[in-house]
Design a protein around this nucleic acid. Structure first.
Length: 432
RNA sequence: GUGACUGUAGCUCAGCUGGUAGAGCCCCGGAUUGUGAUUCCGGUGGUCGCGGGUUCGAACCCCGUCAGUCACCCCA
């Protein structure tokens, strides 16, 4: 049996990385006063159709959609923003108040897997509601910039920003763009010809060189921006300048989800191959109302955890402290009618009682003394505690240092001492 | 959905123009009785992705199929 395509297991080898990344992000966003929200993996399909947009690729062909036993159409969430808005609305969190929220978890999209792209992937999302000023857009960028610094990947990512304007302004621009491109339709690449009808803005970031050449003379989105969008964007840029955040204005930058307007941005890297966007987001002032709430300004972004992990790995920004080898490995040698093992297990329990943070391996699976020592060494434990018939008889324990002698000397002169239980336990405090 | 490349031991891979499989790592055991990471010796482990075809004979050639990877597309 194999796992479902594009849905990967997270093996013990890598899970410390995830814990490190997740806790670092949580720490960062919480330092800006954001609180965690959790919502279901499954929502009514309608929610995504109304938010993401009915004619987007995500909704048209990438959702895991099925009817439940009542015949209601449900979908695994392909992203978090829609559910977040729904949850806030449902519980009145947006009524005359602001919210700064974050969430994390798996998202599902039926796509062809490749590097940095899976069918079940994980995102951390950040959303701010009820604030319309560009300062909150900037806050998200400052926050993510700080995060890259915390992770040590700030040199590998660059920020691209753009303004999409209001939906009215965008509609006018879209019409102009379509008109321009329709005249030269024959010269466009195949994909772009198709997009002309479905999602013309997407043609702007086509990878086809010929198409890019044709776009040079195309109408520019920023010429169509309304005054309010333009002012908002200019203020944002001023704040970023003042905060020393470098960015590139990319007026070809668009979003795949319909609900974005005004500010959009992406943090991208060239270290991950084709899927180089590590974090993306923007403003979506219309969404809350679109989902039946009161008109509420909102900005948000989402990071791809797998992509960040890949980036940490390629840049070798993996903290050494992640290796969580045990402090103590307890071996039980001999039998005495089960007494030895009982004694060893009782000792392990009192260690855990005395040191709540201890990582202690016991139950060594028996075997010869030699093989138990090998296992103790392989476990990476700093200390082996040896319990044999002698120790049981005298109510003592033997402590052997496996890494160094406890006083900095090398392991070949490893110290071994036999102490009464109480003293031995206290002695172990040194390495825990 | 399209394309390219790849499927040999738990892992990383070798296997020349077809002669019925090999290395390293890992794991287990041993090198005098209760002492590890080095060294030495020995051992476990493979329907060569699967199905067909060509051939006296296929891991190797041909066809199909499945899986994986990367890219297009799309996007975090």
């Amino acid at each position: 049996m194999q796992s479902v395509k594009g849905m990967n297991d997270l093996l013990p080898e890598i899970s410390p990385m995830w814990q490190y990344l997740e806790s670092t992000i949580a720490q960062c966003v919480q330092s800006y006063g954001y609180s965690e929200i959790r919502f279901p993996l499954l929502e009514k399909t309608e929610l995504f159709k109304r938010s993401i947009g009915e004619v987007t690729d995500i909704v048209e062909k990438e959702m895991y959609t099925f009817d439940d036993r009542n015949g209601e159409s449900l979908s695994l969430r392909p992203e978090g923003t829609a559910s977040c808005v729904r949850a806030c609305e449902q519980h009145g969190l947006l009524y005359n108040q602001t919210q700064r929220l974050w969430y994390m978890g798996p998202m599902f999209r039926y796509e062809r897997p490749q590097k940095g792209r899976l069918r079940q992937f994980h995102q951390i999302g950040i959303e701010a509601f009820g604030l319309h000023g560009p300062d909150i857009d900037a806050e998200l960028l400052l926050m993510t910039a700080r995060l890259w610094k915390m992770l040590g990947i700030d040199d590998a990512v660059t920020l691209e920003i753009n303004s999409l304007g209001t939906s009215a302004a965008r509609a006018v621009y879209k019409a102009a763009l379509v008109e321009f491109l329709s005249d030269i339709k024959e010269q466009l690449d195949e994909d772009s010809q198709r997009r002309l009808a479905t999602n013309p803005l997407r043609i702007l970031d086509s990878k086809d060189k010929a198409t890019q050449g044709l776009l040079v003379d195309a109408p520019q989105l920023d010429d169509y921006l309304d005054d309010d969008s333009r002012n908002h964007f200019e203020s944002l840029k001023r704040i970023l300048d003042a905060a020393n955040i470098s960015y590139r204005v990319n007026n070809r930058l668009v979003r795949g989800l319909d609900y974005y307007g005004y500010t959009v941005f992406e943090w991208v890297t060239d270290k991950l191959g084709a899927q180089g966007t590590v974090c993306a987001g923007g403003r979506y002032n219309g969404l809350v109302e679109q989902l039946g709430g009161k008109s509420t300004p909102a900005v948000g972004c989402a990071m791809g955890i797998e992509r960040l992990i890949l980036l940490l790995q390629t840049l070798e920004k993996i903290p050494e402290s992640l290796a969580s080898s045990p402090h103590v490995y307890i071996l039980a040698v001999g039998d005495m009618g089960g007494k030895v093992e009982g004694y060893a297990l009782a000792l392990a329990e009192s260690l855990r009682e005395r040191f709540p943070r201890v990582r202690c391996l016991s139950h060594c699976g028996g075997g010869s003394f030699k093989s138990q020592m090998k296992k103790a060494d392989k476990s990476g434990a700093a200390i082996a505690v040896i319990i044999g018939e002698d120790e049981v008889a005298s109510q003592k324990m033997s402590i052997k240092y496996l890494r160094d002698s406890g006083d900095g000397k090398d392991s070949k002169k490893a110290l071994q001492l036999t102490l009464p239980l109480e003293q031995g336990i206290e002695k172990l405090a040194e390495v825990i």
